[in-house]
Simulated scan of single mutants.
Amino acid sequence: MPAGVLVLALGVFAVGTGEFVLAGLIPLLADDFGLTEGVAGQVVTAFAVTCAISAPVGTALTARWPRRRVLVVAGAIYLMGAAATALAPGFGLLLVGQVVAALGAGVFVPNASVTAASLVSPAASGRAIATVVSGFTIAVAFGAPAGTAIGAASGWRSTMWLAAAVAALGVAGIARLVPRETSIGNPGGLQERLRPLAERRVLALLATTLVAFTAVYIPYTYIGAIFAPATGDDGVRLAVLMLTLGITGAAGNLVAGRLADRHEGSAVVTVALVWLISSFAVIAAAHSAYGSALAAIGFYGVAAFAITTPQQHRLISHDPERASVLVALNQAVLYLAIGVSGVVGAVGLDIVGPGDLVWIAAALAAVAIALSSLGRPKAPAPDSETRAGEPRTERIP
Rank of each mutant, 00 (worst) to 15 (best):
V271I: 06
V39Y: 04
Y300E: 08
A124R: 15
T137A: 13
V166F: 00
A76F: 13
A83L: 10
L357V: 07
N253H: 05
L190M: 09
Y290E: 12
H263E: 06
G155Y: 10
L276K: 04
V140R: 00
A286F: 11
V133N: 15
L243E: 01
I338H: 05
A293K: 01
V73R: 10
D234A: 04
W156K: 00
F13N: 11
A46R: 00
T209C: 08
A260H: 09
G355R: 05
F47V: 04
I396A: 10
A366P: 02
T221E: 01
V39E: 04
V21H: 08
I369R: 02
Q312M: 12
V236A: 07
I129F: 15
A250S: 06
A368L: 13
L22F: 07
A83V: 12
A46M: 10
R64L: 06
Y217N: 08
L315K: 00
G298I: 06
L273F: 02
N111G: 04
L25K: 02
V70S: 11
Y335A: 13
R69W: 11
R69A: 15
T386K: 02
Q331G: 08
L205I: 07
I26L: 15
G24W: 02
A40C: 09
L203N: 14
D350V: 08
D350A: 15
P122A: 11
L259C: 13
G75K: 00
T85E: 04
I26C: 14
A207Y: 01
R68C: 08
F280H: 05
I138L: 15
G235W: 00
A337N: 14
G38H: 02
E394G: 11
E199I: 13
A101D: 07
G34C: 04
